[in-house]
Write a protein that binds this DNA or RNA. Structure first.
Length: 297
DNA sequence: GGCCAGGCGCGTA
DNA sequence: TACGCGCATGGC
Protein backbone atom coordinates (compact mmCIF):
# COMPACT_ATOMS: atom_id res chain seq x y z
CA UNK A 1 0.00 0.00 0.00
CA UNK A 2 1.20 3.50 -0.81
CA UNK A 3 1.82 5.79 2.12
CA UNK A 4 1.34 9.54 2.03
CA UNK A 5 4.01 11.63 3.70
CA UNK A 6 4.42 15.09 5.15
CA UNK A 7 7.10 16.86 7.15
CA UNK A 8 6.40 19.79 9.45
CA UNK A 9 9.11 22.07 10.78
CA UNK A 10 8.62 22.54 14.53
CA UNK A 11 10.44 24.12 17.44
CA UNK A 12 9.90 23.18 21.06
CA UNK A 13 7.40 20.48 20.31
CA UNK A 14 7.56 17.43 22.58
CA UNK A 15 5.41 14.99 20.67
CA UNK A 16 5.68 12.16 23.21
CA UNK A 17 4.71 14.37 26.14
CA UNK A 18 1.87 15.83 24.13
CA UNK A 19 0.36 12.54 23.00
CA UNK A 20 0.87 10.77 26.34
CA UNK A 21 -0.14 13.52 28.75
CA UNK A 22 -3.71 12.35 29.32
CA UNK A 23 -5.46 14.86 27.08
CA UNK A 24 -6.18 12.21 24.44
CA UNK A 25 -6.44 8.43 24.70
CA UNK A 26 -5.98 6.77 21.31
CA UNK A 27 -2.26 7.14 20.52
CA UNK A 28 0.01 4.13 20.75
CA UNK A 29 3.78 4.12 20.69
CA UNK A 30 5.13 1.93 17.90
CA UNK A 31 8.92 1.86 18.02
CA UNK A 32 10.10 5.42 17.53
CA UNK A 33 6.70 6.49 16.16
CA UNK A 34 3.18 7.11 17.38
CA UNK A 35 0.10 5.69 15.69
CA UNK A 36 -3.40 7.03 16.10
CA UNK A 37 -6.50 8.29 14.37
CA UNK A 38 -7.20 11.93 13.55
CA UNK A 39 -10.22 13.13 11.58
CA UNK A 40 -11.12 9.55 10.65
CA UNK A 41 -7.67 8.88 9.20
CA UNK A 42 -5.04 6.47 10.48
CA UNK A 43 -1.89 8.52 11.17
CA UNK A 44 1.69 7.71 12.11
CA UNK A 45 3.82 10.49 13.62
CA UNK A 46 7.53 10.58 14.32
CA UNK A 47 9.57 13.26 16.01
CA UNK A 48 12.90 14.16 14.47
CA UNK A 49 15.22 17.06 15.26
CA UNK A 50 13.40 20.20 14.21
CA UNK A 51 10.48 18.41 12.60
CA UNK A 52 7.54 16.05 12.89
CA UNK A 53 7.04 13.55 10.10
CA UNK A 54 3.57 12.24 9.34
CA UNK A 55 2.25 9.33 7.32
CA UNK A 56 -1.27 8.42 6.33
CA UNK A 57 -2.73 5.50 4.44
CA UNK A 58 -5.10 7.62 2.35
CA UNK A 59 -4.49 10.92 0.52
CA UNK A 60 -4.23 13.63 3.15
CA UNK A 61 -5.18 16.72 1.17
CA UNK A 62 -3.43 19.86 2.35
CA UNK A 63 -2.71 18.38 5.81
CA UNK A 64 -4.42 21.37 7.41
CA UNK A 65 -6.55 18.96 9.48
CA UNK A 66 -3.37 17.61 11.06
CA UNK A 67 -1.70 21.00 11.48
CA UNK A 68 -4.83 22.12 13.30
CA UNK A 69 -4.99 19.02 15.49
CA UNK A 70 -1.33 19.33 16.47
CA UNK A 71 -1.64 23.10 16.88
CA UNK A 72 1.56 23.62 14.91
CA UNK A 73 1.03 27.33 14.47
CA UNK A 74 0.89 28.17 18.17
CA UNK A 75 3.80 30.26 19.42
CA UNK A 76 4.60 28.29 22.54
CA UNK A 77 7.05 30.84 23.94
CA UNK A 78 4.31 33.45 24.04
CA UNK A 79 2.02 31.06 25.90
CA UNK A 80 4.66 30.08 28.43
CA UNK A 81 5.47 33.74 29.02
CA UNK A 82 1.97 34.27 30.42
CA UNK A 83 2.38 31.61 33.13
CA UNK A 84 2.83 32.91 36.67
CA UNK A 85 6.46 33.41 37.55
CA UNK A 86 6.56 31.06 40.53
CA UNK A 87 8.55 28.02 41.49
CA UNK A 88 5.92 25.34 40.73
CA UNK A 89 5.42 26.66 37.20
CA UNK A 90 9.15 27.02 36.60
CA UNK A 91 9.59 23.40 37.63
CA UNK A 92 6.69 22.28 35.47
CA UNK A 93 8.05 24.05 32.41
CA UNK A 94 11.53 22.71 33.02
CA UNK A 95 10.14 19.18 33.34
CA UNK A 96 8.21 19.15 30.06
CA UNK A 97 9.07 22.13 27.87
CA UNK A 98 7.54 21.46 24.47
CA UNK A 99 4.33 19.96 25.79
CA UNK A 100 1.43 21.22 23.69
CA UNK A 101 -2.33 21.26 23.89
CA UNK A 102 -3.99 19.51 20.97
CA UNK A 103 -7.18 20.68 19.31
CA UNK A 104 -9.41 17.62 19.39
CA UNK A 105 -12.69 16.75 17.75
CA UNK A 106 -15.40 17.82 20.24
CA UNK A 107 -17.57 14.70 20.27
CA UNK A 108 -14.67 12.31 20.70
CA UNK A 109 -13.29 14.50 23.46
CA UNK A 110 -16.62 14.80 25.26
CA UNK A 111 -17.38 11.09 24.99
CA UNK A 112 -13.87 10.20 26.13
CA UNK A 113 -14.03 12.32 29.24
CA UNK A 114 -17.52 11.07 30.09
CA UNK A 115 -15.83 7.66 30.19
CA UNK A 116 -12.98 8.99 32.30
CA UNK A 117 -14.53 9.58 35.69
CA UNK A 118 -12.92 7.57 38.48
CA UNK A 119 -10.86 5.64 35.95
CA UNK A 120 -7.14 5.38 35.48
CA UNK A 121 -5.81 6.58 32.14
CA UNK A 122 -4.94 3.00 31.14
CA UNK A 123 -8.54 1.96 31.69
CA UNK A 124 -9.88 4.95 29.78
CA UNK A 125 -7.72 3.90 26.85
CA UNK A 126 -9.14 0.39 27.04
CA UNK A 127 -12.75 1.58 27.18
CA UNK A 128 -12.31 3.88 24.20
CA UNK A 129 -10.52 1.22 22.20
CA UNK A 130 -13.45 -1.11 22.83
CA UNK A 131 -15.99 1.51 21.79
CA UNK A 132 -14.10 2.18 18.56
CA UNK A 133 -13.64 -1.49 17.76
CA UNK A 134 -17.31 -2.27 18.29
CA UNK A 135 -19.03 0.81 16.95
CA UNK A 136 -16.51 2.69 14.81
CA UNK A 137 -15.89 2.22 11.09
CA UNK A 138 -12.78 0.33 9.96
CA UNK A 139 -10.12 2.59 8.46
CA UNK A 140 -7.43 1.82 5.86
CA UNK A 141 -4.07 1.05 7.43
CA UNK A 142 -0.72 0.08 5.90
CA UNK A 143 0.28 -3.52 5.63
CA UNK A 144 1.78 -4.85 8.83
CA UNK A 145 -0.13 -2.37 10.96
CA UNK A 146 -3.07 -3.61 12.94
CA UNK A 147 -6.63 -2.52 12.21
CA UNK A 148 -7.86 0.96 13.08
CA UNK A 149 -11.34 2.35 13.59
CA UNK A 150 -12.92 5.75 13.52
CA UNK A 151 -14.39 7.07 16.75
CA UNK A 152 -18.08 6.11 16.73
CA UNK A 153 -20.44 8.95 15.90
CA UNK A 154 -22.99 10.20 18.40
CA UNK A 155 -25.72 8.81 16.13
CA UNK A 156 -24.13 5.38 16.17
CA UNK A 157 -23.75 5.33 19.95
CA UNK A 158 -27.29 6.66 20.33
CA UNK A 159 -28.47 3.51 18.56
CA UNK A 160 -26.77 1.31 21.15
CA UNK A 161 -28.48 0.37 24.39
CA UNK A 162 -26.93 1.44 27.68
CA UNK A 163 -26.81 -2.25 28.51
CA UNK A 164 -24.57 -2.94 25.51
CA UNK A 165 -22.39 0.01 26.46
CA UNK A 166 -21.90 -1.49 29.90
CA UNK A 167 -20.17 -4.39 28.19
CA UNK A 168 -17.46 -1.92 27.15
CA UNK A 169 -16.50 -1.67 30.83
CA UNK A 170 -18.36 1.58 31.15
CA UNK A 171 -20.09 0.70 34.40
CA UNK A 172 -22.22 3.51 35.80
CA UNK A 173 -21.00 5.82 33.03
CA UNK A 174 -22.97 3.90 30.38
CA UNK A 175 -26.22 5.86 30.75
CA UNK A 176 -24.23 9.11 30.80
CA UNK A 177 -22.61 8.32 27.46
CA UNK A 178 -25.87 7.02 25.99
CA UNK A 179 -27.69 10.15 27.10
CA UNK A 180 -25.10 12.50 25.63
CA UNK A 181 -25.07 10.59 22.35
CA UNK A 182 -28.87 10.75 22.17
CA UNK A 183 -28.93 14.46 22.85
CA UNK A 184 -26.38 15.20 20.15
CA UNK A 185 -27.98 12.84 17.66
CA UNK A 186 -31.32 14.56 18.23
CA UNK A 187 -29.75 17.94 17.58
CA UNK A 188 -30.54 19.19 21.09
CA UNK A 189 -26.91 20.16 21.56
CA UNK A 190 -24.64 21.34 18.74
CA UNK A 191 -21.04 21.10 19.88
CA UNK A 192 -19.80 22.91 16.78
CA UNK A 193 -21.38 26.11 18.07
CA UNK A 194 -19.70 26.16 21.46
CA UNK A 195 -16.40 27.68 20.36
CA UNK A 196 -18.18 30.87 19.33
CA UNK A 197 -19.84 31.30 22.73
CA UNK A 198 -18.47 33.01 25.83
CA UNK A 199 -16.80 30.49 28.13
CA UNK A 200 -19.56 30.56 30.75
CA UNK A 201 -22.28 29.90 28.18
CA UNK A 202 -20.37 27.11 26.52
CA UNK A 203 -19.75 25.51 29.92
CA UNK A 204 -23.41 25.85 30.86
CA UNK A 205 -24.42 24.09 27.65
CA UNK A 206 -22.18 21.13 28.47
CA UNK A 207 -23.36 21.00 32.08
CA UNK A 208 -26.86 20.32 30.78
CA UNK A 209 -25.67 16.81 30.01
CA UNK A 210 -26.29 14.31 32.79
CA UNK A 211 -22.94 12.98 33.90
CA UNK A 212 -21.01 16.05 32.82
CA UNK A 213 -19.84 18.24 35.67
CA UNK A 214 -17.42 21.14 35.83
CA UNK A 215 -14.30 19.04 35.46
CA UNK A 216 -15.40 17.13 32.36
CA UNK A 217 -16.90 20.27 30.84
CA UNK A 218 -13.63 22.13 31.32
CA UNK A 219 -11.67 19.29 29.71
CA UNK A 220 -13.87 19.53 26.62
CA UNK A 221 -13.74 23.33 26.56
CA UNK A 222 -9.95 23.26 26.83
CA UNK A 223 -8.99 20.26 24.70
CA UNK A 224 -11.60 20.55 21.94
CA UNK A 225 -12.90 24.10 21.84
CA UNK A 226 -9.79 26.10 22.51
CA UNK A 227 -10.92 27.88 25.69
CA UNK A 228 -7.48 28.27 27.19
CA UNK A 229 -8.79 29.80 30.41
CA UNK A 230 -10.62 26.55 31.24
CA UNK A 231 -8.77 24.82 34.07
CA UNK A 232 -10.02 21.30 34.86
CA UNK A 233 -9.32 20.34 38.46
CA UNK A 234 -9.06 16.58 38.83
CA UNK A 235 -7.50 14.52 41.62
CA UNK A 236 -3.99 14.95 40.19
CA UNK A 237 -4.27 18.71 39.79
CA UNK A 238 -5.83 19.02 43.23
CA UNK A 239 -2.92 17.06 44.66
CA UNK A 240 -0.44 19.20 42.74
CA UNK A 241 -2.02 22.49 43.82
CA UNK A 242 -2.19 21.45 47.47
CA UNK A 243 1.37 20.22 47.50
CA UNK A 244 2.90 23.07 45.52
CA UNK A 245 0.79 26.08 46.52
CA UNK A 246 -0.87 25.17 49.86
CA UNK A 247 1.66 22.87 51.53
CA UNK A 248 0.88 23.94 55.08
CA UNK A 249 -2.67 25.16 55.43
CA UNK A 250 -4.26 22.83 52.86
CA UNK A 251 -7.25 23.80 50.73
CA UNK A 252 -10.63 22.32 49.92
CA UNK A 253 -11.77 21.77 46.35
CA UNK A 254 -13.82 24.97 46.03
CA UNK A 255 -10.82 26.93 47.27
CA UNK A 256 -8.56 25.26 44.71
CA UNK A 257 -11.03 26.05 41.92
CA UNK A 258 -11.18 29.71 42.89
CA UNK A 259 -7.40 29.85 43.10
CA UNK A 260 -7.00 28.26 39.68
CA UNK A 261 -9.35 30.77 38.09
CA UNK A 262 -7.30 33.76 39.15
CA UNK A 263 -3.72 32.60 39.51
CA UNK A 264 -2.70 31.14 36.16
CA UNK A 265 -3.56 33.84 33.64
CA UNK A 266 -5.13 33.84 30.17
CA UNK A 267 -3.66 30.43 29.24
CA UNK A 268 -4.50 28.82 32.58
CA UNK A 269 -5.54 25.60 30.89
CA UNK A 270 -2.16 25.34 29.25
CA UNK A 271 -0.50 25.86 32.61
CA UNK A 272 -2.79 23.18 34.01
CA UNK A 273 -1.51 20.67 31.44
CA UNK A 274 2.07 21.43 32.40
CA UNK A 275 1.25 20.95 36.08
CA UNK A 276 -0.67 17.76 35.34
CA UNK A 277 2.13 16.21 33.33
CA UNK A 278 4.78 17.39 35.77
CA UNK A 279 3.12 16.00 38.89
CA UNK A 280 2.22 12.73 37.20
CA UNK A 281 5.61 12.01 35.71
CA UNK A 282 7.35 13.11 38.90
CA UNK A 283 5.09 11.33 41.35
CA UNK A 284 3.80 8.26 39.58
CA UNK A 285 6.55 6.00 40.87
CA UNK A 286 6.73 7.27 44.44
CA UNK A 287 2.97 7.66 44.56
CA UNK A 288 2.35 4.08 43.56
CA UNK A 289 4.97 2.71 45.91
CA UNK A 290 3.60 4.84 48.73
CA UNK A 291 0.01 3.87 48.00
CA UNK A 292 0.86 0.18 48.12
CA UNK A 293 2.38 0.63 51.51
CA UNK A 294 -0.53 2.75 52.60
CA UNK A 295 1.60 5.69 53.64
CA UNK A 296 1.07 8.25 50.93
CA UNK A 297 1.90 11.82 52.00
C1' DG B 1 -6.65 -7.83 49.40
C1' DG B 2 -7.35 -3.28 49.55
C1' DC B 3 -6.73 1.27 47.80
C1' DC B 4 -7.48 4.28 44.21
C1' DA B 5 -8.67 6.03 39.65
C1' DG B 6 -8.19 13.06 34.69
C1' DG B 7 -16.17 12.64 38.75
C1' DC B 8 -20.90 13.17 39.14
C1' DG B 9 -25.53 13.51 41.24
C1' DC B 10 -27.93 13.83 45.17
C1' DG B 11 -29.05 14.49 49.97
C1' DT B 12 -27.88 17.04 54.02
C1' DA B 13 -26.33 20.77 57.04
C1' DT C 1 -21.72 26.89 49.85
C1' DA C 2 -19.45 22.74 51.47
C1' DC C 3 -19.26 17.92 52.46
C1' DG C 4 -20.22 12.83 52.29
C1' DC C 5 -21.84 8.96 50.00
C1' DG C 6 -22.79 5.51 46.34
C1' DC C 7 -21.95 4.42 41.90
C1' DA C 8 -18.95 -0.12 38.41
C1' DT C 9 -14.75 -1.84 37.27
C1' DG C 10 -10.04 -3.05 37.24
C1' DG C 11 -4.79 -1.72 37.69
C1' DC C 12 -1.32 -1.92 40.81
Amino acid sequence: MTLFHASFAVQQYDLAATLASGQTFRWRRAGDSWEGVVAARWVRLRQEPGRIRAQTAVPAGDWQWLRHYLQLDIRLEEVLATFPDDEPMRQSIAACRGLRLLRQEPWECLASFICSSTKQIVQIQQIIALLCRRYGDPLPTPEGVGPAWSFPTAARLASVSALELRECKLGFRAPYLAGAAAKLAAGELDLSRLSALPLEEARAALLELHGVGVKIADCVLLFAHGFQEAFPVDVWIARALRRLYFPRRGANLPRLRRFSQTHFGPHAGYAQQYLFHYIRTRDTQTYKRGARRGKRR
